[in-house]
Structures are given as structure tokens and as C-alpha cells.
Design a protein around this nucleic acid. Structure first.
Lengths: 267, 267
DNA sequence: AACACGGTTCCACATCATGGAACCCCTGGG
DNA sequence: CCCAGGGGTTCCATGATGTGGAACCGTGTT
């Protein structure tokens, strides 16, 4: 915290208050803010009133502080997916650096799974840009995650089978999803394209719903052996993003180490 | 601007900078901000650096300032429609006060038109709460606006006809929409329910697309006579909301008085 | 009535923000 | 190559401005 900052104490403190409120994403009382920031009562009061005046904060009917008009305005003008991508960028970059493989982020838009961001492989042989390429959900790890966590429904009728390894029918897909849920990550090996392996994990939103899936893909020889390690690494990274999106520490419902931290993702 | 504010000059100025950037919704250069705010170069620099550090602002690759992490985070967590409602509230309240009639705001969600906010009539006889009531688009003024401005497609097949006054077929609806576009507002008289009249206008978003329709409804005897006056009043109010959403003054493409103002809607 | 709670106002003090000028870095032009 | 200029940061003396303790206010509680 003791950065070499000078000549901006009031502003820094005020910005801290705003950040606290926005991160929490739930009404914060005067007292909450006061001791979250450790400021004197009078100072807190002065700053908060100024922030309210300027539209950065706002008081709800009960008198607690929430994000103000400026935030509404910004949010009303911008697609949440677009913003998700911006937030995910650091995480994806980190994964790219970690693994060297191509990193994907996709969401369910209606019935379809669409890629919304990608970080390219550093290897010569790697998955090429497939943003906006339509791929059946049950053939890609990204899609399986969305299926497994209920962000997407399996379509009626027969499933497309791009390769012999593609899961043959709805039941097989359901079992595979089952396993993915237990394990925390989904896998596709040669199921979309021979030699292509993908691993993906869910990204959770505000109400513990799955808003996106985050994954990597590359040549089977490079990924298949260490699928387990890569899966765990993805889980770690996506947890950071999820907890950022979810806001104030909520106990994780999944049976496991209930995490409580809520650190800033960006370095 | 000369409110009785004390002990918060730095903060006020900084908040002004943020507000400028957010309102503009396009990258603002240092120089832009400097003379938009009339601050000394050094002061501007200090404030901007502090704002950047705190995540309220951010520099794009070209060095211009845009809304920062905190805004992304907020936007990623919140539905733009929810925020639209918050922004529209003052406008709707004003319309309620103006006319005394029930005021509606609706958007196209997929194929359907859904009410997202309502201000109730002050009269005893008025439209009741119909938030979440499904109504065919071609029977309500709100729906017609969405059809007319292309936010919604007419469904295939025969149209429902709740009353004898309901427009009989797709062609009639198209002609009616045509007229609505010319006039700027849409009208339904007894077409959804005998004795019920509605008037609605479009709300434009960032890229001149229609994001919602804003309208009023009430008993035909009270509204039918002064439809024209009410239509114009709606247009006025919705223009304020649209220009807020659209951001920096864009010349209106519609042949008419090109408006340039971009005032705050809220009183 | 007394008290605790949540918040605002007051005020003397000195810390912190201020803005002019100097400075730095890059780019383009002569 | 050097100079001019735009864009931005750093320095620093100055005093305006933000600070926090204490007093105050309003409201609900015992």
C-alpha cells in the first residue's frame, strides 16, 4: 500500500472507498466503510458526501452506500460479456504464459457456445484462432463445461460426430459431464478433430451461476499426459476470476476447501 | 457547480475527470481532459495518475484515458437492462408526474417483449401492473415500437386478435409501423383491450440501435384526444434518456433538428 | 430520562494539494 | 544533426485545503 504516491491523499482514500463498495457489490454502511478504510469519522463523512455528490457513490433507501450513477451509466452502455473479456484477459495471459498453449474463453449465447476471447499458443503447432467458429457443444471441452454446469442444454435429436472418438450419444455426453463436474474440469480428446485435445473449467458469476468456460487446447501428445495437472492449473486461475466476479467472499458450495479470499487478480 | 462543498477540492476535481471520461464513453486524451476541466497541467497529471492507480481510469494503448477496472467489474456483474431501468427511473417518474398515466419501459428479450419497469397511474382508473405479463408485440404500442425500429421481428403465422380493433394481419401491422416511424411514436387504441390506449416511443442506445421502448397507457377517453401532444412529450423525455445512453453528442441521423446537447437527465 | 448509535458540523493546525516553471522524451521538419 | 513543439511528468515554495478530535444532532432503545 505504501506506493510512492504523493500529493493525492484525499483522492487515494476516496478511491479506496469506491473500490471497496464496488468490489463488495452489496450495500456498505457508513460504519463498514469507516473501519474498512480506517479513516476518522469526519474524514469518512466528508469523502463519502463528496463521492455521492459526484455520482460515484449513491445511498440506497436504508442509507447504505452502493455504486452510483456513473457506474450505472457505464454498465447500461456496455455488454457484460465484453467486460468479462477484459477482466479475464490477465488470467488468460497468465495461463498462456504458464502453459504455452492456446487459451479460450467462451460463453453460452442462446443455444450456441461462442468463443469470446483467445490467447494464442506460443508453440508453432497450436490451435489457430477460432473465435466465431461454430462448434457443437458436446465436441469441445468448453462446450462440455457449459453443458455440465447447466448453462446450456443438449439439443434434441442426433448429435454430430466429427470424428470416431466423438461421444456417440446423449447418454455418453451426460456421463462425461457427470465426471467433469466431479473432477472440476472437462476434457475432449480427439473428439472434435483428430489430435486435438481441450481442457476447460467453469467461471462462476454473481449468483454461483456459470457465466463462461475457460480452457486451453493443443495437440493431444502435448496435453493428454498432463491433463490432470493442467486441469488443476485451470481451476486455480478460474477461481481467481470467479471470485472477482462473485464479489464478497461467499463460501464455496462445492464440498472442498471453502475459500474466503478475494484478492485482486491483476498483478 | 458552486455548491456549498468544502474540504474536498481535489476529490471534486478528480470526480469531474472521471465523470467526463465516463460520459464521453470514448478515449479522452490528456489534453482533452485538461481543458475540459480547466485545471493546471501539473494538477491534471497528478489527479489522473492517482485515478489510474486506483482503477477508476485506465489508459488505452494510445495513452488516452478510458474507464478503468472498477467500471469493468461493475459492468461484468450487472445486467445492462437492470441499469437501463435505473437510468430511466427519473424520466419515467417525470412522465408519470406530467401525465398522471401509467408509464412503461420494455425491451425485446429474444422474440418477446417484456416490461422491465412501470410507474403507476395517479388516477383511480389506470393500467394495472403488467410487469411480466406476456402481450403479443403487435397489440401494444411498446411492442410496435420495437417492431417498427427493427428490434423485433413479426412472428410467422397468423397473428393473435384479442379485440376486433386489433390489426388483422402482418401487412396492416407493417403499415402501422411505417406510420409510427414517420411520426416518431406508436399508438394502440383498443387493440389489446377495449378501452385501453397506449402510446410509445423508442429509446436509442450507443450505436443508434433501439434498446427499449418507453410508453404510457390508460383509458382511451383520456388519451385518444391528446395522443399527439402525449406523443411529443414522450419523444422529449425519451430523447433525454437516449442522449444519455448514446453518450457524446452524435448528430441525429433522422432528418430533423440535429440535436447536440447532452445534459444530465436527473434533476 | 438516560443512553447508545450513526452521522454531520466545527475548528485550529500543519499537511497536503496547488500551479508555475523547469524538465524529459519522442516525433517530425528543416 | 539540431531545433521546435507537443504531450506529459517532476520539482518546489506557498498557503489553501484536508485533517481528526470533539462537540453536536437526531433517532431509536432501554
Amino acid at each position: 500500500m505504501s506506493e510512492t504516491a504523493t500529493g493525492t491523499r484525499a483522492l487515494d482514500r476516496a478511491a479506496d472507498l469506491v473500490a471497496t463498495v464496488v468490489h463488495a457489490d452489496e450495500p456498505m454502511s457508513f460504519a463498514d466503510l469507516q473501519d474498512a478504510s480506517g479513516l476518522a469519522k469526519s474524514t469518512t463523512s466528508r469523502l463519502l458526501t463528496a463521492l455521492e455528490r459526484s455520482g460515484l457513490l449513491e445511498r440506497d433507501p436504508s442509507g447504505s452506500y452502493v455504486a452510483g450513477r456513473l457506474f450505472w451509466l457505464y454498465a447500461a452502455r456496455h455488454d457484460p460479456w465484453e467486460e468479462l473479456v477484459r477482466l479475464a484477459r490477465p488470467v488468460m495471459d497468465a495461463l498462456g504464459a504458464d502453459t504455452g498453449e492456446t487459451v479460450h474463453l467462451s460463453v453460452a449465447r442462446g443455444e450456441r457456445v461462442v468463443q469470446v476471447a483467445q490467447v494464442d499458443s506460443t508453440f508453432l503447432l497450436g490451435t489457430r484462432d477460432w473465435t466465431d467458429v461454430e462448434v457443437p457443444a458436446h465436441c469441445s471441452a468448453l462446450g462440455k463445461v457449459l453443458l455440465a454446469w447447466g448453462a446450456l442444454e443438449l439439443p434434441e435429436g442426433d448429435l454430430e460426430r466429427p470424428t470416431p472418438s466423438t461421444l456417440p450419444d446423449a447418454d455418453a455426453v451426460r456421463r462425461d459431464c457427470e465426471q467433469a463436474r466431479r473432477r472440476g474440469w472437462a476434457l475432449t480428446q480427439d473428439e472434435l478433430e483428430i489430435g486435438l485435445t481441450g481442457i476447460a473449467v467453469p467461471v462462476f458469476g454473481v449468483r454461483d451461476d456459470v457465466v463462461a468456460s475457460l480452457g486451453i487446447s493443443g495437440p493431444t501428445p502435448r496435453l493428454a499426459q498432463r491433463a490432470d495437472e493442467l486441469g488443476r492449473r485451470l481451476l486455480d486461475r478460474s477461481a481467481a476470476l470467479s471470485s472477482l466476479l462473485r464479489g464478497p467472499a461467499r463460501p464455496t458450495t462445492v464440498g472442498g476447501t471453502a475459500r474466503t479470499e478475494n484478492e485482486e487478480v491483476v498483478a
